[in-house]
Every structure is written in C-alpha cells, then in structure tokens.
C-alpha cells in the first residue's frame, strides 16, 4: 500500500509520545518493584517497557529510535539470561538447593528499614530477557521492505 508518498505531519503524535514514553517507563519500573508482594513482576514490567519503546517506534521511525537508544537487544537478552541463571545457580555453590533465595533487612538511607531479596536479581534477568526478545521480534518484523 505504498501509493501515496505524502509528507504527513505527526506533530501531535510525536509530542505525545515523548511524554507518554516516560509515564509508561516509570509505571513499568513501579510494576517491576511491586512484583514481590503484589501483582506485577519482571515479565509484565518488561512487556510495558517494550511497549513504551514500541510507542516511540510508531511515533518516529526505526532509524531515529536506534539513534536515541543505541542498544543491541540480543546482547540484552544474553545478559538477562546469564543474570537469571547465575542468580538461580548461586545457592548450589554454598550448599543450598537450586533456586533458594536469600533475604535480609538493611537500613537504607532514604527508604528506612527495607528487605532486600536476591529474587529481585532473578526478576531483573527476566525483565532484560523479555525486553530484548520483544524488541528483537518487533525490529525484525519492522525491518523488511
């Protein structure tokens, strides 16, 4: 359907996408950290982050988004897989069962007494894998002419 070569002016869409991108991205960060006790987690957070990037891709084009986010998404997927595997396999070397997670309470300067889990690192790996795979698929679909 490449009939018209009109130069359309997407001013409203592009201006909205620049603001809504940050709203969606911070909401995905909130979903990611809420995932321990309430609904959410790495998978939904990764899907939301990739949908924020997809909004940028729709509003602009692939070349511009590659310039402002110079990330190789396949390396991102590999990093996430390594992180998730290392976090899951770490308890074997200290004599605990596979997938055991550790937590403790720390006094952080801004948050007060918080509990830090190693399960969050595994979730970060899931997040990176989901973002990487989704963006790889979408870039591959969008690239062909």
């Amino acid at each position: 359907m490449k009939v018209t070569k009109l130069k359309t002016n997407d001013l409203i869409l592009q201006f909205t996408a620049k603001i809504v991108f940050f709203i969606i991205f911070f909401f995905s960060i909130h979903i990611f950290f809420a995932g321990h006790y309430t609904p959410g987690g790495g998978f939904v957070g990764g899907l939301l982050t990739s949908s924020a990037i997809v909004l940028l891709v729709i509003a602009f084009d692939l070349k511009t988004v590659r310039k402002i986010l110079p990330i190789n998404y396949m390396y991102m997927t590999a990093t996430g897989l390594i992180l998730a595997l290392a976090t899951a396999a770490f308890p074997i070397f200290v004599g605990k069962p596979f997938f055991t997670h550790f937590f403790d309470y720390f006094n952080l300067p801004l948050f007060g007494k918080t509990s830090l889990h190693t399960a969050a690192l595994f979730d970060l790996g899931v997040f990176l894998v989901v973002v990487g795979v989704t963006m790889t698929i979408i870039q591959t679909i969008g690239e062909d002419e």
């Binding site: 359907m1 490449k2 009939v3 969606i24 909004l55 084009d61 690239e143």
Partner: peptide
C-alpha cells in the same frame, strides 16, 4: 496503556499503510 498503543498503531495503519517505518525522512 495497551489500548492507547493499539489505537495509535491501528490509526497509523489506516492513515499510512505501514505501522513501523525505517526512515520517515
């Protein structure tokens, strides 16, 4: 959020014929 992105993508498909373009310039 998902409904908004879906509506934007459908609108762009109706308007232009392709959703993701490589180089709009």
């Amino acid at each position: 959020i998902l409904s908004f992105i879906g509506t934007v993508a459908f609108s762009k498909f109706i308007e232009k014929g392709d959703i993701i373009e490589r180089d709009s310039s």
